[in-house]
C-alpha cells in the first residue's frame, strides 16, 4: 500500500516504528519507551487532535505472540480525516507507560479503564483509580489468567437476615 506522506516523514524521525495495514486501517507499532515522544509528535506536528480510544489486549497463550500485553491507541485527525492506530507492547513486570492525559483530555477515563481491567499503570495520570469495579477489588479481570468466575469477590458481602434488617 502507499503510505501517506505524514507517515513517511514520521518514520524518518522514529526509525524503530513499523507500519502495517489491515482492511484499510493504518497501524503503527512502536517500542514502549518511544511511545510518549511519538504521541507528542502525532498530536503537535501531525494534528491528530482527537483520541478515540485506548484499549489493551492480553496475548497470554495467544498463538505466535511474543509479548504479553498490547496497548492500542486509536487516533483521529479531525482536519485531515486521517485515522491511525498506534500499538505498543508491554511485558511483566514493567507495566508502566507514560500517560496521554497531557496530550488528550479524553485519555483520562480511557486509561483508568485499562488500568481497571488489565493493571497497566500510566505514569503521570492525575487520578489513576478504578473506574468500573469497586475500589476494594484486588484483581484485574480482563487478564487471561483471571478465572471467569472470579476469585470469590462476588461472595464477599455481609449476609442480611430478618433479624439484622
Amino acid at each position: 500500500m502507499i503510505l501517506p506522506s505524514y507517515l513517511l516523514a514520521l518514520k524518518q524521525d522514529f526509525l524503530s516504528a513499523t507500519t502495517s495495514e489491515y482492511i484499510g486501517q493504518l497501524r503503527l507499532r512502536i517500542p514502549a519507551d518511544e511511545l510518549q515522544s511519538l504521541l507528542t509528535a502525532l498530536k503537535q506536528r501531525y494534528e491528530f487532535d482527537m483520541l478515540i480510544d485506548i484499549t489493551c489486549v492480553d496475548y497470554l497463550n495467544y498463538r505466535g505472540a511474543t509479548d504479553r500485553f498490547g496497548l492500542v491507541y486509536v487516533l483521529l485527525g479531525t482536519e485531515s480525516n486521517e485515522r491511525l492506530i498506534v500499538r505498543t507492547y508491554l511485558n511483566e513486570p514493567d507495566l508502566t507507560v507514560p500517560s496521554a492525559v497531557p496530550l488528550w483530555e479524553s485519555a483520562n477515563w480511557l486509561e483508568r479503564e485499562v488500568f481497571d481491567m488489565f493493571g497497566i499503570r500510566f505514569a503521570g495520570h492525575p487520578d489513576l483509580r478504578r473506574i468500573l469495579l469497586p475500589p476494594e477489588f484486588a484483581s484485574f479481570p480482563l487478564r487471561k489468567d483471571y478465572p471467569l468466575q472470579g476469585r470469590g469477590e462476588r461472595h464477599n458481602f455481609p449476609v442480611l437476615t430478618r433479624e439484622s434488617a
Partner: peptide, 13 residues
C-alpha cells in the same frame, strides 16, 4: 461471571 451475584438470597431474605 466474577461480578454477578449468584442469587440475591445469599445476602438478603
Amino acid at each position: 461471571t466474577y461480578c454477578v451475584v449468584q442469587g440475591i438470597d445469599r445476602f438478603i431474605p
